[in-house]
Design a protein around this nucleic acid. Structure first.
Length: 485
RNA sequence: GGCGCCAUAGCCAAGCGGUUAGGCAGCGGAUUGCAAAUCCGUUAAGCCCGGUUCGACUCCGGGUGGCGCCUCCA
């Protein structure tokens, strides 16, 4: 195993476990193992997922940009997630499958595909491994047996529960005192659990359950939390660098994961990261509140890059309120970025990149410093806009030679593209499709018409092209065109 | 009720014990046959009350308002 060479950086991450911002040092030099809680695939992907997975996508992209070799694991939960409190509820997937009269795996497959389709659209890099809970039942059972053997779990009527009292650290991650939560009002009365706070590792399957596995306790299916403990351990090892997920999973999901894994003797994650939530009118967007906007629906109104830019213009640990004003502002900002990117690339021509101008070196430094500070993407975008302003000024003043312009283009592609994922490769819009030469011909014709003051005809060319989705813009150095989507 | 988070200009959103955050919108200008687009410049802030300090948007205390979690959720 070779250690990759890294760009200079001093990354600090706010760790939810210790509640402090501390320097990141990977377990293995040059390598990062990260696990992020993936979706339970029983309904449409919504914007909440987008915030979470875009945030962690940028985390992974930044690590890779720094030069780390990353293994990014994100589960697909396709069994075991219960519909209501305690552990008396029906499995979410099974319920939906029953209502839709399809096989649970059909349902899981459908929503898994939709999930990836939506994430692809948002430019989210796919995880290196997307393990399914149903495909890792033996691994889950192994941990459950270990927990029983160590006295941290017990079986009742074909179900196995984790004994919260047997693990003194239970409650540390979410900052709660388990003795006090005992008084909680939402605990189900008719449980066969020894303690109402105990959670299910394994559930006995009732008569109609299709998804079931035979065990020494009879047929059943795994509880919600155990799949993440099993799959992270399998693919990242007993201890790994980062475990991430949404704030709403901090308790109970992550609390339970930690209890299970630690009690089984696994050191588990070294850093815990939690992204904040998306709100609508100041209220959390969630499936249960029914106020969610699916990613597909949001993408009907806004370009994927705009959604991505909007998500990244708020820190991952801050809530983001979904509102048209905010998306419109994001689009404006992104357009400014794109315009500069296009112009500087145009200036560069086919010239090879030369030395980076001083202002660009400064901007890159500011960008890295921002990302190093717990992935502060809003601040990093600020650095990018400083680069835009200086680049525009240099361009306008004729101060930017093609080699320097090429270097700036490369930097923008690197920071705005590779790291943040809001910029594509340079020059794609101009060269895409086969209409280029035709448009160029019309532009040339129109220039001739304009010089003869035949403005009615030249306007017809402009309007006609616009109707075809091609916009002409008259600038100082001639007419340029862009394709609108 | 318990635990935690937040309050910044018309809107979105950061850092920082003293020196411009940034974006959108607005305003002024450049450019243009017109338009659009683009570019440059620019206005504007820190919920309330107290305290610490030479100095607070930034630290401390107390209010007020909003949000999240307390076994469905990214």
């Amino acid at each position: 195993m070779t250690t990759p060479s890294l760009r200079p950086h001093q990354l600090q991450i706010l760790d939810s476990w210790t509640r402090t911002k501390r320097p990141f040092e990977p377990l293995t030099p040059g390598h990062v193992g990260i696990y992020v809680c993936g979706p339970t695939v029983y309904s449409d992907t919504h914007l909440g997922h987008a915030k979470s997975y875009i945030s962690f996508d940028v985390v992974v992209r930044y690590f890779r940009w720094l030069g780390y070799r990353v293994r990014y694991v994100q589960n697909i939960t396709d069994v075991g997630h219960l519909t209501d409190n305690a552990d008396e509820g029906e499995d979410k997937l099974l319920k939906r499958a029953r209502l839709d009269r399809v096989h649970p795996m059909e349902l899981a497959e459908t929503y898994t595909r939709l999930y990836f389709r939506d994430m692809d659209a948002l430019g989210v890099t796919r995880p290196d491994i997307s393990p399914r809970a149903t495909q890792h039942v033996p691994e889950q059972l192994a941990i459950i047996r270990q927990l029983i053997q160590k006295g941290h779990a017990y079986e009742v009527g074909g179900s196995v529960y984790f004994s919260v009292k047997s693990w003194s650290e239970y409650g540390k991650l979410s900052g709660r005192d388990i003795e006090e939560s005992e008084e909680g009002t939402r605990v189900s009365v008719r449980s066969d659990k020894r303690d109402p706070r105990d959670f299910a590792l394994w559930k006995a399957a009732e008569g109609g359950h299709i998804l079931r596995w035979d065990t020494e306790w009879g047929p059943g299916f795994p509880g919600w939390h155990i799949e993440c403990s099993a799959m992270s351990q399998k693919y990242l090892g007993d201890t790994f660098d980062i475990h991430g997920g949404g704030l709403d999973n901090q308790f109970p999901h992550h609390e339970c994961e930690i209890a299970q894994s630690h009690a089984a003797g696994v050191p588990f994650a070294r850093f815990w990261m939690h992204n904040n939530l998306i709100t609508v009118d100041g209220q959390k967007m969630s499936k249960s509140l029914g106020n969610f906007t699916s990613v597909a629906k949001a993408l009907e109104k806004h370009a994927p890059e705009t959604v991505r830019f909007w998500v990244l213009s708020t820190h991952y640990r801050s809530p983001a309120n979904y509102a048209d004003d905010a998306l419109t502002a994001a689009k404006g900002g992104l357009d400014r970025l794109l315009n500069c990117y296009r112009e500087v690339h145009r200036k560069a021509g086919s010239e090879a990149p030369g030395a980076l101008p001083d202002f660009a070196v400064r901007a890159e430094r500011a960008f890295v410093a921002s990302m190093d500070d717990d992935f502060n993407t809003p601040l990093a975008l600020g650095a990018l806009f400083d680069l835009v302003r200086e680049t525009n000024a240099a361009l306008a003043g004729g101060q930017l030679a093609p080699p320097a312009a090429a270097a700036v283009t490369q930097l923008m592609a690197s920071l705005g593209g590779d790291v943040l994922g809001v910029l594509g490769p340079p020059g794609v819009a101009e060269t895409s499709g086969s209409v280029g030469p035709l448009v160029e011909l019309l532009i040339d014709l129109r220039k001739e018409l304009k010089s003869r003051k035949a403005f009615d005809l030249s306007d017809r060319v402009r309007d006609g092209l616009l109707a075809q989705g091609i916009e002409l813009k008259d600038g100082k150095e001639g007419t340029v065109w862009t394709k609108k989507n």
